[in-house]
């Protein structure tokens, strides 16, 4: 059972907190307990990496912490809101206001230009047209895609597509950014660039970036690395910040 030291960092409230959560899946007659009595704190403004072999529960954890999946038991606090108490609409609203997502597949609409991909979610945030466009442009500039923002996904490389996907998440100016294997479909150079961007977002925008990956290159750049296996945290390591490593197993 993992009980991270919630009392050891009382100064600032965590951006994300899981308290004794459990989650099981039923596929056919097979009951798989993915998480059981699992607790975790994710600090604000850091790039936190969860790594581990496939099937260890890291994607499920990401889905739960980001409000995409409900827990069977326990509580999830995101920016002080208890996600379990929000209905579907309220969850959508929470995600709209506070979260960004970057997925392994870039999931860009084939018909839209890079600029429109980024602008589209902003349209739904109640921003004015000009504000939405200004944000979209800024965001694309930040990931170095401004010169290619008129192009459609079919005219972009994999790395460029992922940068557009990051810009789409970033333009919302979210407090929480979730990334699921963002580099696994990319070559070394592009993967490195994506990691750099995610790291920069955490540090310049103060965004809490939670990344799930087994890419060793990401490990080097993360502020904190959680190694997971069989639904448990095996190790919890801080890299850049000079604090003591704290084993929580």
């Amino acid at each position: 059972m993992t009980h991270p030291a919630a009392a050891s960092q009382p100064a600032t409230p965590p951006a994300l907190q899981a308290i004794g959560i459990s989650k099981a899946f039923l596929s056919g007659k097979l009951h798989t307990q993915v998480l059981e009595d699992f607790s975790l704190r994710i600090e604000a403004g850091e790039l936190t990496l969860i790594s581990g072999p496939s099937g260890c529960g890291k994607s499920t954890l990401l889905a739960i912490l980001s409000g995409l999946q409900k827990v069977d038991g326990g509580r999830v606090l995101a920016l002080g809101s208890e996600l379990g108490q929000l209905d579907l609409r309220a969850l959508e609203r929470f995600r709209l206001q506070h979260t960004g997502f970057v997925f392994q597949g870039f999931n860009l609409f084939p018909a839209l230009s890079a600029f429109e991909q980024v602008e589209l979610p902003l349209n739904h945030m109640g921003l004015s047209r000009d504000e939405a466009r200004a944000r979209a442009r800024r965001s694309l500039e930040e990931v170095g895609m401004a010169p290619r923002m008129k192009l459609r996904p079919s005219e972009l490389s994999g790395g460029e597509k992922q940068r557009v996907a990051i810009a789409r998440a970033l333009a919302k100016e979210p407090e929480l950014l979730f990334a699921d294997e963002p580099t696994s479909a990319l070559d070394a150079a592009n993967g490195q660039m994506i990691i750099d961007i995610l790291h920069r977002i955490a540090h310049t925008h103060g965004t809490t970036v939670l990344c799930v990956s087994h890419d060793p290159r990401v490990v080097v750049h993360a502020d904190r690395v959680l190694a997971m296996e069989d639904g448990r945290i095996l190790s919890d390591r801080r890299t850049h910040v000079p604090t003591n490593d704290s084993k929580v197993t």
Binding site: S66, E92, T99, N107, M125, K172
Partner: peptide, 17 residues
């Protein structure tokens, strides 16, 4: 376009939209 729609929903664009 299911994955793209799902991504929009993840970003908070409602099912109604």
């Amino acid at each position: 376009s299911m994955r793209e729609y799902a991504t929009l929903n993840a970003l908070g664009v409602g099912v109604a939209a």
